[in-house]
Nucleic acid binder design. Structure first.
Length: 278
DNA sequence: TTCCAGGAGGGGG
DNA sequence: CCCCCTCATGGA
């Protein structure tokens, strides 16, 4: 893709392959804010601001290399979209979510974030994670705090996570911090998707859907299809009435193969914002 | 008031 | 294996 890296910025010229609104609002990330025309993004302990210019988007950051990888800039999404466009069901979602990219997010942050996401809504997920950041993280910008380190999170109690709003998921968080750590998650990268999924499923608070989200947004696996309530509604609307999410997942994986992860994100974004009006 | 949200854990059959 | 229930919380 056409982009330019400077000392403290990245300019992205191909607006059809990079739309910060769709990238950030499509449900894959919880650490961002919009202030006027500027998007502020703060994965892990990094920080960037994105603004649209006439000929390009500019990402202002002290760590452009990190965000070039974070925004998956080296991947050509024209190819992916071209292949996906052969599926008739993808026509509208591709148009609606033009410029979506699958982010390369931190494994440990994905684990914690998507445990909290279970049976929850995005607004409240952002709220809970923001509470945890504000209480355990370090200030990295005005009113913005870093994602806490593993060591810092380990000092937190179940009662603390409940106070942050995590509800009954507080117990899962305390448990999972004992089961694994960031380094162990990195070491799982070498596993094939079947065994990686098996390992993730052994963790507290990680079921089929959460495991698939971690694999897609953290490990960037294309051969996963997270099935949540929106995907299920989408499937019942466009394919057939099925209540078994595991069966839905298998069918969609069989349909989209290694492009499943990308297809899922377009379909999820489209369904969550439009399906209720169809 | 009831229902729902990027579901998972646990028990019983 | 499957089916059923429960688990906080806040907005609609």
């Amino acid at each position: 893709m056409n982009y330019e890296i400077g000392k403290d910025y990245i300019k992205v010229f191909d607006k059809r392959q990079f739309n910060p609104i769709h990238i950030l609002e499509c449900g894959q990330i919880f650490c961002y804010n919009r202030e006027g025309d500027i998007y502020k993004v703060y994965p892990l302990d990094q920080y960037a601001e994105i603004e649209e210019k006439e000929e390009y988007y500019i990402i202002r950051t002290q760590n452009p290399d990190f965000f070039a990888n974070f925004f998956d800039l080296r991947r050509n999404y024209d190819e992916i979209k071209s292949k996906l466009s052969k599926f008739s069901i993808m026509k509208e979602p591709l148009d609606f979510g033009e410029g979506i990219r699958i982010l390369n997010q931190d494994l440990f942050e994905m684990l914690i974030s998507f445990i909290i996401s279970a049976n929850n809504n995005i607004k409240r997920i952002k709220l809970i994670l923001g509470n945890i950041r504000r209480n355990l993280g370090e200030k990295i910008a005005e009113n913005i705090y870093s994602f806490p380190s593993y060591q810092k999170l380990c000092t937190a109690s179940e009662e603390f996570f409940k106070q942050m709003g995590a509800g009954y998921r507080a117990k899962y968080l305390v448990n999972v911090l004992k089961q694994t750590n960031p380094q162990k998650l990195i070491e799982l990268q070498t596993l094939d998707s079947i065994n990686l999924r098996k390992e993730l499923l052994s963790l507290s608070g990680v079921g089929p859907k959460v495991a698939d989200c971690i694999m897609l947004f953290g490990y960037h696996r294309g051969d996963v299809f997270p099935v949540d309530t929106w995907v299920q509604q989408m499937y019942c609307h466009f394919y057939e009435n099925l209540e078994n999410r595991e069966q839905i997942r298998k069918n969609l994986l069989n349909e989209f193969g290694d492009l499943s992860g990308y297809a899922q994100q377009y379909l999820f974004y489209f369904s969550r914002t439009n399906l209720k009006n169809l």
